[in-house]
Design a protein around this nucleic acid. Sequence first.
DNA 1: TTTTGTATTGAATAATCATTCAATATGGGT
DNA 2: ACCCATATTGAATGATTATTCAATACAAAA
Lengths: 214, 214
Amino acid sequence: MNINPKKISNPQLKEQEFSINHQKLIDATIETIAKRGLADTTIAQVAKKAMVSQGYANFRFKSKENLLLSSLKFLSDEYKNSWQRIFEDNNLDPVGRVIKIIENDFSSKIASRNKIAVWVSFYSEVKFRPSYLTICQKQDEIYSSQMEKLIKELNFLTDQTFLTPREISETYLSMVDGLWQRILFDPKMYSHVFCKGLIKKYFKNIYTDEKRFV
Amino acid sequence: MNINPKKISNPQLKEQEFSINHQKLIDATIETIAKRGLADTTIAQVAKKAMVSQGYANFRFKSKENLLLSSLKFLSDEYKNSWQRIFEDNNLDPVGRVIKIIENDFSSKIASRNKIAVWVSFYSEVKFRPSYLTICQKQDEIYSSQMEKLIKELNFLTDQTFLTPREISETYLSMVDGLWQRILFDPKMYSHVFCKGLIKKYFKNIYTDEKRFV
DNA sequence: TTTTGTATTGAATAATCATTCAATATGGGT
DNA sequence: ACCCATATTGAATGATTATTCAATACAAAA
């Protein structure tokens, strides 16, 4: 018996990847990992949450592994887009851009405990799944180099010379990763306000004259 | 057929936890997680590496879950001991102590890619296993408060007043966690030398007069 | 040597799950 | 109204794996 009404495929979209069911399954995967962990995420649960049959989920993504990989790619793209929007905003000066970056990195959309749990689940498998590693490494490279360029502009406008742009950007990115992890342990103590404050204080200590790093 | 010679139990040690097989199994568990990941760690593999039968591993630890928990506890204790040794060394002044802490946190014993992989595997399950969370939270609390106290002493000796001890210690601990994670992604770029240098530069920037933060 | 209690084995069990696929549903074209 | 291509189902399959437990090995005591 076919309970669900048939989903109409859009012939314009040659790429399967954009169909409704495809995205429903990816969303359900992320939700399931967030709620139960990667180890306890089964195709049956994901399919149930996405309201399709178990067989369909597998058929659609060819394998569970591929479904997980697609979900990681989706998360990675989501993060990239939010970051990219800030860099493309021509109304921002370097300081404003850094502040937006910090605020984005600890926004409720990006740094929710659920999403962090999903990220860390994938991180934990990076050593064993080359495909995960590739995505995470590429992501890292992009943000490292973009952040470094941004700090270079910032240093150019100030008399800060002791720390190199590379050092500042690596320190920033490490702090973000570390704080995200700590949100997992204790989301109350490591509130978004606390994390943003800590990082702004770091920048304030470097660029003492800049009043916008509260 | 019983291939292995019987292991002699030491009646002095009432606590089962100290027998040879107990430790062999924990070591094998950590090695297996490091090599294959938490998801692909089976009792059969652990038992094989520890050179005991599969049944015995389960009998000894009551359950796989308990074996994993014991392994996490072991790792946690190992870290605590290395840290504690530094705090009990009365020959060190605050600066020397901070430097030792940094060097310990990126020593090959503590910050090997294998061990970090194991840590992150457990971290990734923290949201779903209260027993893991408890251990990680407790660990975090200890280091936060000890580090804060240490920085307080350091501030007392210098004219640094802008950053509070709490802020410095939280920043330090976050950076360490973040850098560890990055070692997973790219151990060559995030070499121990690089990580230690980055953190010392952070301290050097705060305590500009202190020449030992190279 | 024989007995006895403990340590250890390894094969059987039962549960869980990814994957497959034959059967069915659907909706547009004719 | 019928056909056809595609979408979707759901039950069956086979692989993997934690857990159990009856059988065996062993060391020390008697």
